[in-house]
Design a protein around this nucleic acid. Structure first.
Lengths: 107, 107
DNA sequence: AGCATATATGATTATACATTCATATAATAA
DNA sequence: TTATTATATGAATGTATAATCATATATGCT
C-alpha cells in the first residue's frame, strides 16, 4: 500500500467526522481557545480536547499556548475548500434524492 | 447534531480511506468494471466490491450494468478536487516535517 | 443443461474510533 | 498556600470499520 495514499487518507480522516467538522467550521473566523470551542459546538470538553489533539497531531490544526488557554486554528486553507466541495456534493445528492419522488427513475 | 454536518461527514468518509482512494484514483480516466479495478489496485475482489458498494450507496460513484460486468464511475468532479487538496496538504505537511530536521523549532 | 466468469454477500475476526466520567496537570489569582 | 480555571488524559464501553474466506447469485457461452 502506497504510503502517499495512506497519508492522504489520514488527512481526509482528520476532517471526515461530524464533531471535527463542527470544530473546523467554528474556526473559520480564526483561532479560538478550547474554552470557546466546546460550548459553541455543544460537545463535552474532554471529547472536544481529544478531537483537537487528533487534528493537531495530523497537521490540520495549529496550537498556540497563552497562559492557561490553548488556541487552535486551521493551518491549511485547503481544509475549508475540501469542506465546501463536500457540501456541494452533499447538496447535489440530496436534491437528486428529492427529485426521485417526482420522477420515474428505476434501477 | 446537525444533519447537514452528518451528511458532509458521510461524503468525506466515503473518500477518506486508503483502498477507496486507490479506487477513485484509478477511476480518474472514466468508468471501469470491477474486474479491471481490483487487479489494478491489488486488493481482493470481495473487499473491492464492498468499497465500491459503499461509495455507490453514499452517492460518490455511479453504477452501470452491462451483461455480467458492473461499471463504476466517479459521479462528482469535486471528489477529485477534494483529493487534490488533501494531496497538497499532505505534501506541505511532509515538507514541514522534513524541514524540522534542519531547523531549530521547539515546542 | 452444464460450465465459466463477474459480482455480491454472510460470517467472522481484528482493529480503530467516539464518547463519557473521573481525575490529573498546569497556570493564575486571591 | 489554597482555590480556581483551563486543558489533557486514563479507563471503560459501545459501535463502526476493514479485511478475509467461503459461498451465493447472475449472466452468458457451448
Amino acid at each position: 500500500m502506497s504510503s502517499a495514499t495512506n497519508y492522504q487518507a489520514e488527512v481526509l480522516k482528520s476532517i471526515a467526522q461530524a464533531t471535527r467538522l463542527k470544530i473546523i467550521d467554528f474556526l473559520r473566523n480564526g483561532e479560538r481557545c478550547v474554552c470557546e470551542i466546546f460550548p459553541a459546538i455543544d460537545e463535552e470538553q474532554s471529547n472536544t480536547s481529544r478531537h483537537l489533539a487528533y487534528m493537531q497531531t495530523h497537521g490540520i490544526l495549529s496550537r498556540r499556548k497563552d497562559g492557561v488557554k490553548i488556541y487552535y486554528a486551521v493551518k491549511h486553507p485547503e481544509v475549508f475548500e475540501i469542506i465546501d466541495r463536500a457540501t456541494a456534493i452533499a447538496k447535489r445528492e440530496s436534491e437528486v434524492r428529492i427529485g426521485l419522488f417526482s420522477g420515474a427513475e428505476r434501477d
